[in-house]
Design a protein around this nucleic acid. Structure first.
Lengths: 240, 240
DNA sequence: AGGACTTAGAGTCGTTATGACTATAACTAA
DNA sequence: TTAGTTATAGTCATAACGACTCTAAGTCCT
């Protein structure tokens, strides 16, 4: 008997099915204020369950690929995105995440820079949404996005994460705007600058951003590490 | 055809099998110095692959239990342990973690207090080992323990984690010894005390530890939160 | 051309956290 | 009684931090 012909009580005895999903964060200007805010791309379900609802991009784990490769491939296939910043977030395995079939999802999260975000193949079934104003998503994906936001805020307060949402060159004010968007609070420009100047991996270039209506700010560059398969997670270092 | 009769090339086309394992840390006095050091319980493999070698306690995910419940149950069955502190660590899914069958492991980690550690059902096939002097383990379990140690150190430098390795009441010197064991460096007793006194959730009792050969130290108690299924992870909070 | 406006970026000041260190307290062992 | 040991309080210089001021260097408007 094939799995597709099994009834509900029989399915509950099958091994859990394993899927890989990804939460992708990117910056877009808010329609209202024009300030940068967090957005994420979602894909519409084209099969049951939750047919027609929006969901995180994801799919099954192919036998010949690592977890991270599975996330990358699926991302590329469904959205066209190929984020440089991609890390494991958490494994979700609650009993009632899906209807019928038991489902365990290993969720990754990604940060995309503007040039990467442009590659999105938007369509009827692929669209960007504001992270803080999501409608009801398929499965428990609202919870997962909330958790990813919580982790993002923590990482943000620690260190070198904001740059992965910005382009190759950026002003210190742009970094501050990312912090303000994610942490949802105002930061003192002067003090913020002093701190950033003291952190490693942020190099001043000799270029300036022109075209503003005020004094041209200097452009900086991020020269620090990017997480890969071996660098699993970076966390905070703080005394008790 | 049943899975057990499939040959290697056929097995590589099957869905990955999913297992839950746990790294359990507890304190034991070092034989040499008598100071507390990190130990962990391992179980001997009683089947192929890696038959006879030591491995992390673990097993398959039953269809009717959550990931955390699976970790708890398996821990209890194999070692007799029921840790109050149990959190998800990471999902390991590399291609060549096991021989033949593709294996994805969702790994939890636990901290046990002395009273909990006493419940270990030690035997020919269950034993505690020093975390920093492990022999060659089954699968990639050496890597997993190394990663767990790295995470433990990070959490330690952040905050309220050491108490979960100590008993209900403890002296500030005992907390310091835990820090010194995990971080592997000496800490100034006076400064460490000052910091701990400033952190929340550590309450002084009116009791003192007697029986030492010197001035009796005051006993303290931890009154903070313990992670459960809903509190997934606590991480660091630090300015850029 | 000139002044208003805006953000960039440097610097000041008082408070607080931190590391190195000193001094006293309170017990045991002899 | 004295030496040994750790507990616990406190000092001092330095570093980090938040709130704030001041000047620089552009654009925009009239």
């Amino acid at each position: 008997m094939s799995p597709t012909s099994a009834n509900v009580s029989e399915r509950s005895q099958e091994p859990p099915s394993l899927a890989i999903s990804t939460v992708i964060f990117g910056l877009r200007p808010s329609e209202a204020s024009g300030r940068p805010t967090l957005w994420l791309p979602l894909v519409r379900r084209i099969r049951q369950p939750y047919l027609g609802q929006w969901a995180l991009p994801g799919g099954p784990l192919a036998p010949s690929e690592s977890l991270q490769d599975a996330a990358s491939r699926n991302l590329l296939e469904t959205t066209g995105l190929a984020p440089r910043y991609l890390e494991q977030l958490y494994a979700f395995g609650g009993l009632h995440r899906s209807v019928g079939q038991r489902l365990v999802s290993i969720v990754y999260w990604a940060l995309v820079q503007p040039d990467e975000a442009e590659l999105t193949r938007e369509s009827e079934n692929v669209r960007w949404f504001r992270a803080d104003r999501l409608e009801r998503l398929a499965f428990d994906h609202n919870d997962i996005v909330e958790y990813a936001l919580w982790r993002l805020r923590n990482k943000m307060e620690y260190g070198s994460i904001a740059y992965h949402l910005l382009g190759e060159r950026f002003t210190l004010a742009q970094v501050r705007e990312v912090y303000e968007a994610v942490l949802d609070k105002q930061l003192d420009p002067a003090n913020f600058r002093r701190q950033l100047r003291a952190t490693p991996h942020i190099e001043a270039t000799d270029e300036y951003l022109t075209g503003t209506r005020h004094r041209p700010p200097r452009l900086y560059r991020y020269a620090g590490p990017v997480p890969d398969g071996s660098t699993r997670q970076s966390q905070a270092v703080r005394a008790p």
